[in-house]
Design a protein around this nucleic acid. Structure first.
Length: 646
DNA sequence: ATAGGGTTAG
């Protein structure tokens, strides 16, 4: 710990006490700083205009409202209550303690305000995302005749970033140039990361290149690397990292964290581990930010055991550490372990926050764990998350994915505010549960409310049309998407329309669409076409689709195209060709992966396949199934014959 | 001045 040299009672003047307090604040022992203040008073010494700002800082670090109020009342009793420096420190203290109202009251009472006091307010509202308030303050500040400085412009940039408002970032940038602060490195660094966050990497690059090589700091590089990493341009992020090393810069924790958090795919495990090694070499591998980033990197790269190893080795785990680990298990469907950690977290005295709840909710949706999902729903609502739109959206999604469309609808209907995500989630849920008409109605209603559907909304509604076989409606929406909303369809949108045309027997149009689309067709689109060819017994188109499919996936891993093609030949009684496909399968040793199903019984997941006799109770299970099919025969229910062809 | 866990799709 820190060397807390207590000033001796004999020689201790205010100056010595101030130095001791400053040392405590610097070493992150803010509670000791406040204790020293009490001792100082007990020794009959009064705080001065240097003591109060230090105490304010300590109180802000602790986010302690009660100590803030004590310090404030001491200030009011002192002769320094009118000192501008002290007042700004008080202001900052209230802001850091989340007491915006108190800060405003204080701010209004300060007779003469300088840049620093205005900046505290601008930054406070910028951090809370009140763009209107920030712009209003900025205007009033100008009316007051105060010249903004870099801190003000940083606040403005941060506020415009919250809504990813690129136009506003640009105009703030222009303003910065006008008042001549664009030569400042920290200002340039802020703009690099701001442009990156608004997904305008060329502007970010332009600002970066505008900073002279000798003036660039690690933060300049970090901002660029974080920008490319968060836009899933890992290769670029990595090459900038290499470039940074070549230029002789020493990466810091932030560099490592940004790089780690851009390794989000299983095939990035090697690179992720490499960055881990760099972290070790730099000596920052035990930094809590780095460890948290490592946990989520390993889990997202499908190496959950390494995540767990790091997690178990931690001495201090924050809410983020627990959540990273929990969401790792939840994402891969291991809800038992996720829940065990959730309870362990509460035992350890760490309070879960909304992100923790969100990971569990999405895990329930992924595995269809409705009972657990309902429990977490209850938990979220009794812990003050009832009004949180993000949590509610996740809950709607969970209910719908678990087949509880009624629960999803109930929640959706009572939402006080519905975002585009809420509507999209509900439409997806309806499509998933066969409520195609409702999906279409919701879509019209959403548009009537004046909300702008995005590419995912269109995907949801097009999928509903595809499943329902609404060809005209689907085509209409597809056109609306491009003409009215200016959204470029992705491969998934094209896939829906191809599937829809194919199913309706309009194979020629389907193929023409695929051939003319501006995005590269994927395997899914050709598979959809192939199965349409099977339904409509079209050998030529089938062969064509099959050929394209093999071009895309020459490894011949899956059996599906073979089986489909053999069936198409068989349906046209072209037995020789059907047999040839079967032979080709044998020669190429094509593996047949049976489709798996998952069902939860008493909270325990059971995975099974067609004709699965591996379960200990399989005899009983199949007996039950037989009686069920007997029953359905009696009730004259006949499943589609098509389902049994393959 | 930069940085860690997350809602709709997959």
């Amino acid at each position: 710990m820190v060397l807390l040299s207590k000033p001796s009672k004999n020689i201790g003047g205010v100056f010595e006490w101030n130095s001791a307090i400053r040392e405590c604040v610097k070493q992150n022992c803010s509670h000791k700083a406040l204790l020293l203040f009490r001792q100082m008073k007990q020794n009959g010494l009064e705080a001065d205009n240097f003591t109060f700002p230090l105490l304010a800082k300590a109180s802000a670090n602790l986010c302690s409202l009660s100590s803030s109020q004590i310090i404030h009342s001491n200030v009011l009793k002192s002769p320094f209550w009118s000192d501008l420096y002290v007042q700004t420190a008080m202001l900052d203290m209230y802001v850091k303690c989340q007491q915006l109202t108190d800060a405003c009251l204080l701010f209004d009472r300060i007779p003469v305000r300088d840049v620093a006091s205005w900046n505290v307010m601008v930054l406070a509202f910028a951090q809370s995302g009140f763009l209107d308030k920030v712009l209003g303050l900025f205007r009033d500040m100008r009316f007051d005749g105060i010249l903004p400085d870099t801190v003000t412009v940083v606040g403005l940039t941060r506020a415009s970033l919250d809504s990813k408002n690129l136009a506003l970032v640009k105009s703030v940038h222009a303003f910065g140039i006008r008042i001549g602060i664009d030569g400042d490195v920290s200002m340039a660094n802020t703009w690099i990361s701001a442009y990156a966050k608004c997904e305008d990497l060329s502007s970010a690059m332009a600002v970066f290149n505008g900073v002279e090589i000798g003036v660039r700091t690690v933060v300049s590089w970090n901002s660029l690397i974080a920008g490319y990493g968060s836009l899933e341009k890992f290769i670029n992020a990595l090459s900038f990292y290499k470039w940074m090393l070549c230029d002789g810069y020493r990466p810091d924790t932030s560099t490592i964290v940004s790089l780690l958090s851009s390794c989000i795919q299983p095939d990035k495990l090697f690179q992720g581990a490499l960055i881990h090694c760099h972290g070790i070499k730099l000596g920052c591998d035990s930094d809590i930010f780095v460890v948290n980033a490592l946990i989520s990197m390993y889990s997202r790269c499908s190496d959950i055991l390494s995540s767990r190893f790091l997690f178990d080795g931690m001495t201090d785990r924050t809410c983020v550490s627990w959540t990273a680990m929990i969401s790792g298990y939840a994402e891969r469907g291991d809800l038992d372990e996720a829940l065990r950690l959730f309870h362990a977290m509460e035992v350890a005295g760490v309070k879960p926050d909304l992100v923790t709840v969100l990971s569990l909710v999405s895990g329930c949706g992924l595995t269809g764990a409705l009972e657990l999902g309902k429990w977490i729903h209850q938990y979220a609502f009794s812990n003050g998350l009832r009004d949180n739109i993000v949590v509610c959206n996740a809950l709607i999604d969970m209910h719908a994915k678990c087949g509880n469309i009624i629960g999803a609808r109930e929640l959706f209907n009572v939402l006080p505010v519905r975002t585009v995500v809420s509507w999209t989630t509900m439409i997806t849920g309806c499509a998933l549960n066969g409520e195609y008409k409702e999906a279409l109605d919701l879509f019209s209603l959403m548009v009537e409310f004046g909300l702008k559907p995005n590419h995912l909304t269109f995907l949801a509604i097009l999928q509903a049309c595809t499943h329902a076989g609404f060809l005209e409606k689907g085509l209409e929406l597809f056109h609306m998407m491009r003409e009215v909303y200016n959204i470029n369809p992705g491969v998934d949108h094209y896939s829906c329309i191809t599937d829809l045309l194919g199913r309706k027997g309009r194979l020629k149009e389907a193929v023409e669409l695929v051939e003319s689309m501006p995005v590269k067709p994927d395997a899914g689109i050709w598979s959809a076409l192939l199965s349409a060819c099977k339904i409509h017994r079209n050998v030529e188109m089938g062969e064509y689709a099959c050929g394209r499919l093999f071009e895309l996936e020459p490894d011949l891993e899956g059996a599906v195209p073979f089986v489909e093609m053999a069936n198409i030949y068989a349906s046209e009684r072209r037995w020789d060709e059907a047999a040839a496909v079967r032979r080709a399968m044998k020669i190429n040793k094509v593996k047949k992966f049976p489709g798996q199903s998952l069902v939860r019984v008493n909270g325990k997941p059971h995975v099974f396949t067609v004709e699965d006799r591996g379960h200990p109770d399989s005899l009983l299970l199949y007996a039950t199934l037989d009686s069920l099919s007997l029953q359905s025969k009696e009730e004259e229910y006949w499943p589609y014959l098509e389902d049994f062809v393959t």
